[in-house]
Design a protein around this nucleic acid. Structure first.
Lengths: 206, 206, 206, 206
DNA sequence: AATGAATGAGCCTTCATTCAT
DNA sequence: AATGAATGAAGGCTCATTCAT
């Protein structure tokens, strides 16, 4: 119950949290639109009521703000993924639930991010990948690597992980470009590709 | 006998060519290590014994140097890929030959690039993707998209293309990390994954 | 009581104003000594204890700083000149009052500018014309052109305006070189030259 | 008979002279169009068949090329002006002949310069003052100062010189803007203004 | 001499970060 | 804490001048 913590916090703490969140929200937009390098701290604070210096009361650097966003995404997604892995006995069901979870997450993230933007403005440079989605993808990648290493069939585990990861991301990115965003069929496609592809793979030592 | 051309070239022309190549080599490294955005023209000339202004005798800007590199890769690869496509009657053989060609190319590129690096230095930020490989990959991607659109089975062509591309690249990148670089088995793996995976895909309108 | 505004201003505002003025003062010097083209933004900030970037907190470019200076001069002088023109019924009295006003202005400007300079330094390239005096001169020139066009005797109006302007400026510049600066006799001289010279001019169509 | 010198010179010397002249001609254009500061050595050699380095075989610096042009103008004009002064017994006739000579010179210069330009091109930044005309003007100024000092009526000599100079230049510049360029009436105007204006000047010690 | 690439100081400007208020 | 001006290190690029050919 995080509300309790909030309720018990003084005004000061609440404001602090609000500011931090305002900065993070702005940073997510900016990083998503321009990428890490092109984004400037000024771009971020400009979408905020705050002053330039205030940014550094919350984050030691541009990099730290980026990391904080990534972390947040990872933290939010970690339990979901954990559950996926816990509920799966075999590689097939792991792939199924992990991809589903991943697609749900990025679809949600994307919807929220896009929805909040003022309608009139077009942002030609949108890159579409926020620090969160990047971090979440990293989590998925790690999980796949681990699962493959654990329960992999007699195939080149490293290549298999790479291929799974690639398919998951490739199809996922494409999914986000479509309207409406349909996570179910994207997942069905990716999972089908992976699991069926698995069967055609060269067996090691065969 | 290109040696004739070389032999007949004056010293000036030779130096010019050497400098241009030195700049391009440095640029390839820098772009590969830091990515296009983070790379600066100064980073490039710093790896050269040339002076700051000299860069601009050869390229009008960072973009132009990048484009020159990408172009070179694309130009070198285009005929190979074209042949691949010409010699293939069905999607299967296209995938087979295109991926083989792609892996040969990037393996070669990678070997040359890495081989020339001084042994002692480690470059922590290596991204591994030079403008050339990026350009060549773009060619492969376009070819796959086209082929899928042309001869696609009754599946979601867009997703299929995305998945093929992803697998090709994912496995290819992994291949480059191994020693020795074995293009044959990487290709076998990727092709197997794609072609077999294809069979497990949800049929459209089925 | 402008002191109130000053007194009520926070320290920040005061510093800001001081910095802005420091930059403008430096800019006036630099433009006066080297001319607009040769002057660089760095020349300006170098005469200041401010950092390079600070210039751009106040002015977007060299042009803008120049324009600010010129504007200030023009704004300060415009009402004086307007009054001159309003109070004059004929060309003679206009010339008289306009030149007097112009000389007063540039003498004042010059005194302020020179007085503030450290005694020891000599600036070999002094051109003597600040953006302010240039702007003010432009105003005078326009007024003369307009008055000549309006009330000109039967002489070549264009030449007359050019000659009046030239005399006004030529004598004015010389005046500034003398000590003490005597605006009254300079004005007497210039006005005498113009008005009497007028009588010896070739009549058009005569 | 400079032709003899030319005829007796070897091919080498002829070429050298031609190159020097080509550079000077280009430089005159460029300085006239863009002014000293904005003009670059590259701008100059670009209007030439020569290479960048060759410029420095003829002139040690950009400044020297400018000075050479100015010198040439001055050298060409000096005898004319000298004659003017020699043939004049009083201030009036000096003014008359000096201004006439000056106007002839700058009109000629201007015609040549403008005439050689390709018809189609418009040069928006033309400043109109070449190093030559600037130098010649300086000569006239000096002569006027000297003559005023010598034979001046009982007026403020310094101011008088300034005024004469100013009128000469102001009317001269205006003359160059008109078509056709009419040196006679410009001279008549300027001389009339000066000589008649003289009569209205405050007498010193009167 | 002529060539034209190489040089490197210097210019304008941006931007992450600091700091006095 | 919040503010926002100040800082100064880069960055991209130009250009007068030099130098090997």
């Amino acid at each position: 119950m995080p509300e309790i913590a909030l309720a018990s916090a003084g005004k000061r703490e609440q404001t602090k949290l609000q500011n931090r969140n305002a900065i993070l929200a702005a940073a997510r937009e900016v990083f998503g639109e321009m990428g890490y390098d092109a984004a400037t701290v000024r771009d971020i604070i400009r979408r905020t009521d705050l002053a330039a210096g205030t940014f550094y009361n919350y984050f030691r650097s541009k990099e730290e703000a980026f990391a904080a966003l990534a972390d947040e995404g990872a933290k939010r997604f970690a339990p979901i993924l954990k559950e996926s892995r816990a509920g799966s006995n075999d590689f097939e069901s792991f792939v199924r639930s992990a991809i589903a979870a991943y697609y749900e997450f990025i679809a949600d993230e994307h919807r929220n991010w896009v929805a909040r933007r003022p309608a009139g403005e077009s942002h030609p440079h949108v890159q579409g990948e926020t620090p969160e989605t990047a971090a979440v993808f990293a989590e998925v990648r790690d999980a796949i690597v681990a699962e493959v290493a654990r329960g992999a069939p007699a195939v080149d585990a490293d290549f298999l992980a790479a291929a799974c990861i690639a398919v998951a991301r490739g199809v996922g990115d494409k999914m986000l470009e479509r309207r409406p965003i349909d996570t179910a069929s994207a997942a069905e496609f990716a999972v089908g590709m992976i699991l069926s592809g698995l069967k055609g793979l060269p067996r090691i030592g065969g």
